[in-house]
Design a protein around this nucleic acid. Structure first.
Lengths: 174, 174, 174, 174
DNA sequence: TTTT
DNA sequence: TTTT
């Protein structure tokens, strides 16, 4: 359980192709660099200004694999995740902090190459949700699959109603 | 998979105790009425105005059970979910539309009874996330458990790395 | 001030060109129909399923004008707004409810025509924020300008339609 | 205008009273330390784990003043803002990065002292929105006022510190 | 009514 | 390092 909400939503463009690595146990880890930018006209100078913010986004497991396969430099993406700040000591012994966004959901948007990138692979479809819930919040993007795994730790909650358990639509008293 | 993001975030108070029903197969379904309000001063009359928006929120499974057990009228909650509009025909044969928020996450906030309501029950804890991902977006609230079940359909995605699979912290190349 | 958060975030495609109308006082009102969809494989039948959710989005003022000018059927958009449910009586005297999303921010995403649609008009740039705050939350999209006006009252943006200008409720063509 | 969405939503508790400073031109700047935490049961050890994430949140102007007046250590808050990473060189000449959340909206939630903290001050009410728009996204919280000023430039709210008022970068005590 |  |  949580005490708190720690949520980040980004829509931006990749500055580079994703970097994908694998852990000893074979879990993919992707790192993305995502730019969000804005521009405005300076009131005093009247000049056009621009500021770009770069976000380091980490993805794990299936989501990382999809990122590695379909995302490319320049591509526009929607990312949902949470902030995680890590403290580390660099080679010179200096303590530093680094803030990442750990993605729980990702969705490719239009843009360069935007058209062809749909995850057509057979492994990513979502299965029929239980509980009469055809529709799911935030839902249905590539994070769906990995979200499962990562949010709740692999096994379904013990108390979850058995799947395939005769939940008929006309049972649903909406 | 999805084409699109359909996300609602509410922080509001319950107008009533949740109504909980059960499907034939035993899945709990809770309906909540959540108020979000705002007030402002009318520019012309200078009078104080207020508008309250009432949201009908549906929850399923474990999340519904927690709502039924811990949420009470007046309680302040955080809700995350998605919009679902249903078309139905009322008793007099009139076609109507009804828009619900299907919750994927919920978190009790302070307020009346706010202090004691933490889900202390043993069944709701999240298990250790895999993939070196100690932390999860939005995550970690009561929706975590049910999110699993509902987002991906019970069983973990087949391709998920085996849990308990020797994923050591020092494997994580952050 | 508010007691509560009432926030909607959509990424979807327009089912039609926006409909733009004007109030008696000249404020533009745009209505958009935005689809978010998802698909999954039914666990029992093994068949591919799809569900599309249609959202009615309202925009006002500058934001509505930009929508009318740049958005087209098929276009992918990011929308941020809030839920507003209206009760009304139809021609046959039946009470009905209708839930809209009142947009406070909008951003055109890639997709059909995605490349050319940037708001190049001279009136929409943001000026230099004060307070050392170069960067602003959510900020910087087309909603920025109108958000000003609508979120805080205060001094309407110079280009905003004059307030107090006979904007009667029955002018509102919802 | 923007190309991108950079949005953070937090619900957490303050680790300390806010620190409030003022720039040379009189703009308030508040720094908050907000904790979001989650706990889970480690699958291997079966032990209870907890991880707390600390977020540094910056507020400016009116929002900062409200924070300074009403927020206290332990208080639960809703924060909406955007990520901003600053590069700086510490005293020993080491380059470091620091990631803040620049708040655009804030709302006090229940909790210690949660009941009494409503912004009763006369200056914060929102005025009647124009355009038939009684209701506003996310809107209506304390960020409304300052959001105006910071999001769009345009005409600063009347009570906003004078723009162009010698707010130099080296005034900014980040 | 969109999109993939 | 992206994008417009």
């Amino acid at each position: 359980m949580a005490r708190g909400i720690n949520k980040v939503i980004l829509v931006g463009n990749l500055g580079n192709d994703p970097e994908v690595r694998y852990t000893g146990s074979g879990t993919a880890i992707a790192t993305l660099s995502v730019a969000t930018s804005e521009s405005w006209t300076d009131k005093q100078s009247g000049e056009r200004q621009e500021r770009t913010e770069w976000h380091r986004v980490k993805m794990f497991g299936k989501l990382a694999e999809i990122a590695g396969e379909y995302l490319k430099k320049g591509r526009q993406v929607y990312i949902e995740g949470s902030l995680r700040t890590e403290k580390y000591t660099d080679k010179s012994g200096v303590e530093k902090y680094s803030t990442d966004i750990v993605a729980s959901d990702m969705q490719m948007l239009g843009g360069p190459g935007g058209g062809e990138g749909g995850a057509s692979g057979g492994g990513f479809q979502r299965e029929r949700p239980q509980g009469g819930q055809r529709q799911q919040g935030g839902g249905g993007n590539y994070g769906g699959g990995y979200g499962n795994q990562s949010r709740g730790g692999g096994a379904p909650a013990p108390s979850a109603p058995a799947s395939g358990g005769g939940f008929e639509d006309d049972d649903i008293p909406f």
